[in-house]
Amino acid sequence: MPLYHPEATNHQVAAGDPVVGRDAIIRDARGFFTAFPDSTTTLEAMHQDGEWVMIEWSGGATWQGEFAGRPPNGKTFQLRGCGFFHIVDDQIRFQRGYWDRAGWFLQLGIAVE
């Protein structure tokens, strides 16, 4: 069974508009992992309340592929954030994440707009 429901929504608040639909979420993830193939994430804490799961995480990576229309520059980043997941019938229906876009882009050498 796929992780995301076909009509799931992933709203990474710092990234802007929500991504709707499993196929779009997969495309987004592929784009990220193409740009940052050595990405790591450490689960710092996890809490569950019924159909909701909340996590705190830390992670980082090296910029190795095209990202945001820009070529890679080999810079690394470290971030911390949190995510909220609504899980129904073993599939994510809704996800919302919070992390520091300005701090991330600063580490990568991208101007924050």
Rank of each mutant, 00 (worst) to 15 (best):
F32N: 07
L108P: 00
F84L: 07
A29M: 12
M46G: 09
F85V: 04
A102I: 08
E113V: 15
L3T: 11
Q107L: 12
D89E: 14
I87L: 03
W104C: 12
G97V: 08
V53F: 08
S39C: 01
R80E: 09
D90C: 03
A68R: 14
F36G: 08
W63F: 10
M54I: 02
Y98H: 13
M54F: 00
L106K: 11
A111D: 15
G81Y: 03
R22P: 01
E7W: 01
F67P: 02
G81N: 04
M54R: 00
F85A: 04
N73T: 15
D49V: 07
R101C: 08
A102H: 13
A68P: 02
G60V: 09
D100W: 03
R70F: 08
G50D: 11
D28N: 08
G81F: 03
Y4W: 12
A14E: 09
E7H: 05
A15T: 10
G69R: 15
D100Y: 07
I87W: 02
Y98L: 10
P2D: 14
E44P: 01
T42W: 00
F85I: 04
R101K: 15
G74N: 06
M1Q: 14
G59W: 00
V13L: 12
L79G: 01
V13A: 10
Q64V: 03
L79Q: 06
R80S: 07
L106I: 05
S39R: 07
Y4G: 03
T41Y: 02
L108G: 05
G50L: 09
G97Q: 08
H5R: 05
D90P: 07
I92A: 04
G21C: 04
V19L: 15
D90L: 02
D100G: 14
V112I: 10
